[in-house]
Nucleic acid binder design. Structure first.
Length: 501
RNA sequence: UCCCCGAUAGCUCAAUUGGUAGAGCGAGCGGCUGUUAACCGCUAGGUUCCAGGUUCGAGACCUGGUCGGGGAGCCA
């Protein structure tokens, strides 16, 4: 593609001249040598400038070039074990395209608020770059998965006239005088499309005005939703299982370096394989109130407490280093570690404080309630692979979920909990295809049948067994990348009462 | 809506518990031919979030507010 070689392709040019263009990620000087780390979006390349090999005034300019300046570099590509990527560019020429001065984001720790207010620049940094690449792989894997299985993509509307989830979490809009809302799910429209195309899916943004200020919530997030005609619950669960396996497999294949850079738990990801665990809601309720769970929580508490004393004594050590008369660089290192340990300590304190509360909540769990956040966390911590939880109580779930004909108290639904405390990434169900049962359920929920007239029509004209699910993209990416907060997993996050940019 | 925590240099954090506001990074200048968050020396950089109050004296204590972080409920 023309004038420049992509840094990712430099390995094919060893021993040859190449010209790259990018931004200065980091510059160091060592006397008459300059090390310029240049990034171009495809990778990072160390460019070595030797005094005398370029004009002196260019050398001086490069020596004083600010981080994120845009430049073009020409040189000889050579293998070099001392270079971060294993090869480097021996610079013979360079052209500064645009200078940058006082770039605010340095290669040192920053607070989350600062980074999010500078998100437009933060995207250039290493970790957001890795996450963006992994997110891209996940999206592509999802599309391929469905396309390869005979699904047809149907783009459902973003402006909707009916609610699929809690009415309280709608973003309301005025549509030329008519009250409408931003979509919370494409599901209802997808059910209509499934009667035309059999297997369909949508993949787009969804909007929920939930007042949830947690690490698992965005007000605007992306969801992949398949809807399948002539399937049953176990078929649906298998589909979800295959999908998650396909996603994880692709990421392991395509993004190994990125996973390593961000410190994801690659071994845990490699363990993600069929079959996942399958539990009914009733089994989970029994598990939560069992002595096994209480024991698990106690064991966990002990581990946390042990880790706390470990950290506490390490902090004391580091504080002694800072108070003592050691070298500056030793003090710097100690200070950096101290910052990290203190935040881990704060996190531990919170978990230690919450542990008995959560244990108690679990012990007091009553059949009929929806699983709380802490219950979900406990269950997903108890398993090393994803867990399906099925057959929730009917009254805790949405009106469209199919009543289990062999046990009318529950519905044919499932949630998929990612392991190690990540919690729910998929929710799905068979849909009630019986007109009378659906209408009765809508009455119970206080939903007006005339608002849903076309949805009920689907049960009037050749009603068919069908079901589907929704996979939350950011939660999936957060789980795979090991990010604490979903807000790192979308380029421009929207969270409750904050847009940042 | 409720609970907890925080706000000090551009950034990340200190300040011996009420007694002269500091360090690293970043920025600027200089040194160094193999750096890996390089290193070494020098320089600049402050209305300690805002408004009141207590005090001889407040970054620290009290009241109110603003902003931010985390959690609960609810959810993907």
């Amino acid at each position: 593609m023309g004038m420049y070689i992509r840094i990712a392709d430099l390995k094919d040019y060893i021993g040859k001249q190449a010209r790259i263009a990018g931004w200065l990620y980091h510059g160091r000087s060592a006397g008459k040598l300059l090390f310029l780390l240049v990034r171009d979006g495809s990778g990072i390349c160390q460019c070595v400038v030797e005094k005398g090999k370029v004009h002196d005034d260019l050398f001086a300019q490069l020596d004083h070039l600010g981080q994120e300046s845009c430049l073009e570099v020409t040189g000889l590509v050579r293998q070099e074990p001392r270079s971060p990527g294993g090869y480097e560019l021996a610079v013979t020429g360079a052209r500064i395209i645009a200078k940058a001065e006082g770039y605010p984001i340095t290669p040192k720790p920053h607070g989350i608020d600062f980074l999010m207010r500078n998100r437009h620049l933060h995207l250039r940094s290493r970790i957001p770059w890795c996450i963006a690449r992994i997110r891209h792989t996940v999206v592509d894997a999802i599309r391929r998965f469905f396309n390869d299985r005979g699904f047809t993509l149907v783009d459902t509307p973003i402006i909707t006239t009916i609610a699929g989830e809690e009415v309280g979490s709608l973003f309301r809009l005025d549509y030329f005088g008519q009250p409408v809302a931003l979509t919370q799910t494409g599901q209802l429209y997808l059910e209509a499309a499934a009667a035309s195309l059999g297997r369909v899916y949508c993949f787009g943004p969804t909007f929920r005005a939930e007042k949830s200020k947690t690490r698992r919530h965005l007000t605007e997030f992306w969801m992949a939703e398949p809807e399948v005609a002539f399937i049953n619950l176990s078929g649906l669960i298998e589909l979800a299982e295959d999908l998650v396996c396909a996603i994880v497999e692709r990421v392991l294949e395509d993004n190994h370096p990125e996973l390593e850079t961000i410190g994801a738990d690659i071994e845990a990801l490699a363990r993600v394989s069929k079959p996942f665990y399958r539990l009914t809601y009733t089994q989970v309720a029994d598990l939560l109130t069992s002595s096994k769970t209480q024991q698990f929580m106690q064991d966990q508490l002990q581990v946390l407490v042990a880790r706390r004393s470990e950290i506490t004594s390490r902090i004391a050590e580091l504080e002694a280093v800072l108070a003592g008369s050691s070298k500056q660089w030793q003090r710097d290192k100690a200070a950096a570690e101290l910052i990290e340990l203190r935040s881990e300590l704060a996190d531990l304190e919170l978990r230690i404080e919450n542990n008995p509360k959560h244990a108690q909540l679990a012990a007091q769990f009553q059949w009929g309630k929806d699983l709380g956040g802490s219950d979900e966390t406990i269950v997903s911590q108890m398993f090393d692979k994803p867990v399906f939880v099925t057959h929730y109580p009917r009254q805790a779930k949405a009106f469209y979920m199919r009543q289990d004909r062999s046990d009318p108290k529950v519905v044919e639904n499932f949630d998929l909990l990612a392991p190690n405390g990540f919690g729910e990434i998929i929710g799905g169900s068979m849909r009630e295809e019986d007109y009378e049962l659906l209408a009765a359920r809508m009455d119970q929920e206080g939903l007006k049948q005339e608002d849903y007239w076309w949805y009920l029509d689907l049960r009037r004209y050749g009603s068919f067994p069908h079901g589907g699910f929704g996979l939350g993209l950011e939660r999936t990416v957060a789980w795979i990348t090991g990010q604490r907060h979903v807000r790192q997993c979308i380029a421009f996050p929207r969270i409750m009462d904050k847009l940042y940019l």
